[in-house]
Design a protein around this nucleic acid. Structure first.
Lengths: 166, 166
DNA sequence: AAATTTATGTCAGTCATGTTGACATATTTT
DNA sequence: AAAATATGTCAACATGACTGACATAAATTT
């Protein structure tokens, strides 16, 4: 009887801890670290009335100029309808321009403009500074350990994509 | 003249690289790693028609049983209106229960039920497994390097909050 | 005892970013 | 000529955040 009623379910008063076989320390550190890592560019983006979606697109167009819409969708793992609205805003504001593909004229190659390059750098700078400061007191090999860890956290099938970046 | 027109802005064809003074390697690794890290619980949550918001609430209620609504808001850094809907669903589905504060009867202490404890563990398990596998081939001290790095990525004023977890 | 502050809940509206499904167009490949 | 591909666009919807306003109960201050 009692266990069928939500109202009578008993509160558990003991905390989950690492003793339960779960690596809560890194789970939580990862959550807080990523939240603050993304808060830096968020502040700048607000001035442009842009969001994180704009940031991601602008970032990869700057890192891989000339990539096509399909390639960008593959990197971001979102649908083209999601991309469309945000990409259109970046094009309308002159941060990104589309160039018809030279071989295949159906394709649209995406390039940053000078304005888009400047914004991409402005957004990346505080993130890079945060990383630099986080590694300032790191010992030799620590940076490599962090890189190996982060890469190993990525799904194996996606790792080649990362290696393709400049 | 020409520079005033969006249509005539010139495409930049060179890629942004580490030479531009930005740590793109870790910026991108962090992005991809976090995306895949969160994809594990997302799959499980979909079965319950829950989202990441439910996960975060359930996680911290399990890690800090008896915390009040105000304390939870402070950890998550969201508004009470954002919390309300999602918390209500977790209460209605019997994952979390509220207990009137013993000292201050205005407060509502939040506790997981057995059902909520089980789900929290089910969600944490694949994340912990991913971390374990990412660290499997790590050298001695690598884990500590990763922990130090992640903690240093968090805003300094929030680090005490992390130290308070069990 | 009355006034104020605090903790929580709730209503209403808005926004950003994602989703699915359907369909149009131009271009390339078969 | 037909089929496949790359892109764009329309419509409807879901999630999870936001702001602002207001209500209630309880604790604290005056």
């Amino acid at each position: 009887m009692a266990e069928a009623s939500v109202a009578t379910a008993k509160p558990i008063k003991t905390a989950l801890t690492g003793d339960d076989g779960i690596d809560f320390a890194i789970i939580e550190l990862f959550f807080f670290a990523y939240r603050d890592f993304t808060s830096d560019p968020d502040q700048i983006l607000a001035d442009y009335e842009f969001g994180r979606a704009h940031h991601r697109i602008l970032h990869f167009v700057n890192r891989m100029p000339g990539l096509t819409v399909a390639e960008l969708l593959d990197v971001l793992k979102i649908t083209k309808q999601s991309l469309a609205r945000v990409l259109k805003q970046l094009i309308d504001t002159g941060h990104i321009i589309q160039v018809q593909g030279p071989r295949d004229r159906r394709q649209r190659e995406l390039y940053p403009t000078a304005k888009g390059r400047t914004l991409a750098l402005d957004l990346a700078r505080p993130q890079s500074r945060r990383i630099r400061e986080a590694l300032r007191d790191a010992g030799p090999g620590d940076r490599e350990a962090v890189e190996r860890f982060l890469k190993a956290m990525v799904n194996p099938e996606l790792r080649p994509q990362i290696d393709n970046l400049p």
